[in-house]
Amino acid sequence: MEEALRALDDVERARAEADILRRRLRDAGRYDDTVVVEQPRGVPDSFEELWERLDDFEGVLVTADRSKALDLDEGERARVWAAKAWNALRALDSYTQAAREGFNGGFYQHCTSDRPGAVNWPLKQFAPAESDTTMNRWGAERIFAVPEDVDPSGRKEMQANLKLGAKGGTSPRIYSLDDTQGITGRVIVGYIGPHLTNTKTN
């Protein structure tokens, strides 16, 4: 219920902002610019559709195993997870754009900023790092593919993760590496799939 209310609040804010911007364009005599001829698509209904639309994100490089993400489509809450994954990628993409424009801070700071047009992610659904216990025992599960320009081995540890679900055994996660100041200039998403092993799941 809380997530649904937050989503409705976000929609209302976006609608109000769009109305304000259209009004400003009309006041400036730019009537044609207030009309959107081709309506943008909504959130994907599945991870399969999400994968087909990854090119929409200029600031996100997805190296994750496609099959693990598509397995999530078998879950009861697949549509909810896919929609949340889409919004998570939008937030990461928004952060990358901010970093390119000189934003001083990481993803956490981005999500607490009130920059116009910024896409944020709920902080209580973001873990910037894993516990020492988790990394000591199951750290190998958190090493994912990256371009060889980033690491010659083609793999890199990723601890920062976004929570797509909190109930049930699946509880999907997105793991990423902030390379906005690195060679790719993007956020690298190395994993989209079921919850990995930790002290709570073991």
Rank of each mutant, 00 (worst) to 15 (best):
A4N: 04
A7I: 14
A7W: 13
A7K: 15
V11E: 15
V11A: 15
R15T: 12
A16W: 03
A16P: 06
I20V: 09
L21V: 05
R22M: 13
R23D: 10
R24T: 01
L25D: 03
L25I: 01
R26E: 04
D27K: 06
G29P: 02
Y31V: 15
Y31A: 15
D32M: 04
V36G: 00
V37Q: 14
E38F: 04
P40M: 03
V43I: 06
D45A: 11
W51F: 00
W51G: 02
E52V: 09
R53G: 14
L54E: 01
D55L: 04
D55R: 14
F57P: 03
E58H: 13
V62Q: 07
V62G: 10
V62E: 03
D65A: 00
D71S: 14
D71T: 01
L72W: 06
G75C: 07
R77H: 11
A78R: 11
A78K: 03
A78V: 12
R79L: 02
A85P: 13
S94M: 05
T96Q: 07
Q97I: 04
A98M: 07
R100N: 07
F103V: 07
N104W: 01
G106E: 00
F107S: 00
Y108A: 03
Q109T: 06
V119P: 07
N120A: 15
P128M: 02
A129T: 00
S131V: 01
D132S: 11
T134W: 14
R137M: 12
E141G: 01
E141H: 06
E141W: 08
F144V: 09
A145Y: 01
V146N: 02
V146A: 06
